[in-house]
Design a protein around this nucleic acid. Structure first.
Lengths: 147, 147
DNA sequence: TATTTTGGTCAGATATGTTGACATATTTTA
DNA sequence: TAAAATATGTCAACATATCTGACCAAAATA
C-alpha cells in the first residue's frame, strides 16, 4: 500500500487555503470596474451564468446560483434596469421567462471578463496541458463530492 | 507551435466557474455547525489562519485576511468572548499581541475542519499524487498572478 | 376545477464588509 | 529626550448581499 502523504490533514488544510486564496483573487480582480457601474460580485455571477447558458430561465438560474429567489430578483431587477439582461417569454410555457444578455450586457460582460481572464490566462500559460486537465479534474471531484 | 486549446476563452470561463463552485461547496459545508455556535464563515477563516499560524499577531492576520482591522476586531472580540482564541503579549515588543487557539478553540476548530475535510479528502482520494501536485501548482500560479 | 409551477414582491433580520475619527501604549528615530 | 511611527482597540454610520416568511398572480397540469 502506498503512503498517501497528500491525504494528511496538513495537506488538506493546504488545499483549502489555496482554494480560498485563488477564489478570492480571481473574483476580486473585476470588483473595481463593477463598482464603477454600481454593480457587485453577485451581478457578475449572474451575467456569467447567463452568458454561458443563454435562454436559461429563472428557476434554473436559482439552482446554479444556490441563492433565494428574493436575492436573485433584486439582482435581476437592476440588470434589467441597466439593459444588461433581457427576458423573453417562453412560447411553449408562458409562465417561464428566458434570460439573455442584451447588447449592452454582452459588451459589458466581455469587458469585465477580460480583466478577470488575465489572472487565469497567465496561470494556465505557465502550466502544461496535462496540469490544466488535472487541475480541472480535481476541481470537478471537489464539486461533485465523490464518495 | 502547439495549439493552446486550454487558453481559449471558453476554457478560461470553465476554470473560473469550477473555481467558484469548488470554493462555494467547500466553504458551505461547515456553515451549519458554525451557525449552531452563532459563528459565521468569517470566524472560521480566522480560526483556520490562527491554527495554521500559531502566534501570529493581529497585523499579520489582517494582511492574510485582506480585511480592515475594524472588521477583524469584531470577529476577534467574539472569538475571545467564546474562549476560542487567546491573546498573549509579545515579550519582545509588548505592543504586539500574539494569537493562539485556546483549548476550546482547538477542539472546536478540529470539529469544524473534520466536516470541511470530507469533501477535499474524497476528491484527493480519487486522484493520484501527480494530479494533486499539479492541482496545487496551478492554484499557486493563480494566486501569485505570474506574468 | 383544484393543484402545482413559475415568477415577482414586501418587510425585516443577519453577516460581513467599508470609512473615518479617535485613543492608548509602546517602540523607534531624529 | 521629544517626536514620529507602529500595534492594537473602539465608536459610529453605512453598504452589500444574503436570509426568512408571508403573500400574490398567471399559467400549466392533474
Amino acid at each position: 500500500m502506498k503512503n498517501l502523504l497528500y491525504l494528511k490533514d496538513e495537506q488538506i488544510k493546504d488545499c483549502i487555503q489555496l482554494l480560498l486564496y485563488a477564489y478570492r483573487e480571481t473574483f476580486s480582480d473585476p470588483l473595481e470596474i463593477l463598482k464603477k457601474n454600481s454593480l457587485g460580485a453577485a451581478h457578475y455571477r449572474t451575467l456569467h451564468l447567463v452568458e454561458r447558458n443563454e435562454g436559461i430561465n429563472v428557476n434554473e438560474l436559482l439552482i446554479k446560483l444556490k441563492i433565494t429567489k428574493q436575492s436573485l430578483n433584486r439582482v435581476l431587477k437592476e440588470l434589467k434596469r441597466l439593459k444588461l439582461i433581457k427576458q423573453v417569454r417562453d412560447k411553449n410555457d408562458t409562465r417561464r421567462k428566458l434570460l439573455y444578455l442584451d447588447q449592452n450586457g454582452k459588451k459589458f460582460y466581455q469587458e469585465v471578463f477580460e480583466i478577470q481572464k488575465k489572472r487565469i490566462f497567465n496561470a494556465l500559460k505557465h502550466s502544461d496541458s496535462d496540469s490544466v486537465i488535472k487541475f480541472k479534474e480535481v476541481l470537478k471531484k471537489i464539486i461533485n463530492g465523490k464518495k
